[in-house]
Design a binder for these strands. Sequence first.
DNA 1: CGGGTTTGACCCGCGC
DNA 2: GCGCGGGTCAAACCCG
Length: 323
Amino acid sequence: MSDNHFYHDYMGTGGINTFPFFGENPSNCDQPIIPNIQNQNQHQFVPSSYMSLTECLHSSMDYNTLSSAFGMSCSSSEVVCPHVDHQDSSRKSSVPVAAETVLDSPLGETSVEIPPTPNSSTSSTSNEAGGQEDSSKIKKHMQKKGCQEEGDDKSKKECKAKKKGEKKQKEQRFAFMTKSEIDNLEDGYRWRKYGQKTVKNSNFPRNYYRCTTQKCGVKKRVERSYEDPSIVITTYEGQHNHHCPATLRGNSSFLYSSSHFMPNFPPQLFAQMLPPNNQQNLLISSPYNSRNNYHQHQAGNPEYSVFGGGTDDASWIHKQEPP
DNA sequence: CGGGTTTGACCCGCGC
DNA sequence: GCGCGGGTCAAACCCG
């Protein structure tokens, strides 16, 4: 089993598909595959040779491009791990998908992209992530008090009708697997745990976290693979509408890169842009890695493509030395 | 005392 | 309609 995988599920396509970089067989998870983005001819952010992370971030590549490179099309925007969702794929496949995705430019400017899909009748901004949570809270509150207190059948019916109308929109999601002994991997953001559930067919509970920043509705789920307990599956939902707190403390070019330029993009994703064949890769531990280790790796090193392995967090990225 | 965690209860969507 | 399972709430608790 490799240590670093991404899976992709195209929501709304009627079933679970794997992340494009992994081919068509979900069971391919055992084969570590570095994204060959060059082959994704519709994606233009990768030049003829691999670029450095910094180059990537300073290039015309934006969240949009990146997200599409990762298969996060705007109309189908969930990346999931089959280990997590296979067991429940029948449910998932019928979940409606948000028709639009909020994308952040490399400079942190938020833009709204509305894809030309029939479902794209609404639009949203990243700030609505928090608003969505607020509304759901209100909704809950209404359910518990408002609707019940009003009492008469008419208002109850109206309440129900309203609920039917406002079908819950799915936030953009993606999941990744990391080999780690630590469940809650440090990613620079501050999270508050709000729930824990036992998962069917798994000995390990699933933990629910919410970004502690006010009005940021980003959530993440953390669980261990029931197939390989050493693997942590982290699922992010939504997009941060603020800078990474660790960035604000300001202590690393890495944070600057991943969080300033692409504040909503988890650092771990950058690890997927690794050049598979460059000779000198620096594995840089994240500055918010408590151990603050720095490691140098060579191509062919068995630890290559491992991020998080050997330390207590998975926030490593590879950096290509300039030619 | 404020902020985070725990955990039982509740809600909701889905399949049967 | 019912039961199941995932997701969320919120009171109680913990900790620095």
